[in-house]
Amino acid sequence: MMLEDLYRLLKSGHVQAQGVVDTMTQPIVVLDQNFCVSTANNAFIRTFKVERDDILGENFFSLGDGQWDITELKNLIASVIPKAAAVIGFEVKHDFPMIGPRTFLVDARRVIHPDDNSTNILVLFDDITVRRRHDAEMEFILSETRHRMNNLFAVVRSIAMQTSIEDRTARDYRETLLGRLETTFRAQEIAATNDAADFEDIVRLAVGELGGDRLLCNGPAVELESAKVLSVSLIFHELTTNAAKYGAFSVPGGEVHVEWKLQAEPQGQTYLSCEWREVNGPPVKPPERKGYGTKLIKGTSAQLHGEVELIYAPAGLSALLKIPV
């Protein structure tokens, strides 16, 4: 081979190597055995916001006010590399003066020149700051989801346990359980997707298809904050279930009138005062024992800092509900 050909070959090899290094999107720097910078690619210049002329020939650890003088990185390059040929994926977290806090995975490889046995160190940086942040966000979402699943399961279990099995058929138990579950899920869906919901919408939704033109609503528009949607839904769901079994919804022609108004109290608190009144239903007598439905209505009202009164008038049940809004 002619000397000229060899030179051309070497030169094109060099150009190719240079091209590869410069095309890499990760920052790369080549240090000599005294840890002075002999090459830095464009990505390095860009990422660390440095001038090429300022860094070539300079000691890497004293660059830019010593921004690279990071103990763990120094140990890696100065002591590990001479022993091991390469270190892959060493994580460095550092707050850089120009670019702020970053997390890098550093690969370092010892390269020995075949002619003079001089040592170069090739250092490659992989900026995983964004990836780490995504990982953290993903972990947060997963843990939140797990938490909500557990919570949901606890609620389902609790409803199943508290729905009485005494004196009822399996079919009746299943319908009551599903009715409560569906009301809960629907209300949670509304609460999760809205900041507030219209009171009449909540009542109509809770009463469901039994209502239709047999549910007569009359009152001003009232916005309920989302935290109250579930409780209010449950109250009207339980009243509906009761009306379907024993009250106005158990006979053709029975109706439920729901009327409400806003009441300002002297202390500045506004209350929603609402009456559920069943008409044209069968004669009503007070129940012999307080069922879970009644307990749920009372418990839910108490949770809303409200009060509820159930009046078993012979002509039809009335429920007076008063809750702060």
């Binding site: 609620v155 609790s158 409803i159 508290q162 809960t184 579930l230 449950l234 749920l296 418990g299």
Partner: peptide, 11 residues
């Protein structure tokens, strides 16, 4: 804050 759970704990 979950009304069903609260009532169950109470009971």
């Amino acid at each position: 804050d979950e009304v069903f759970l609260a009532m169950e704990l109470e009971a």
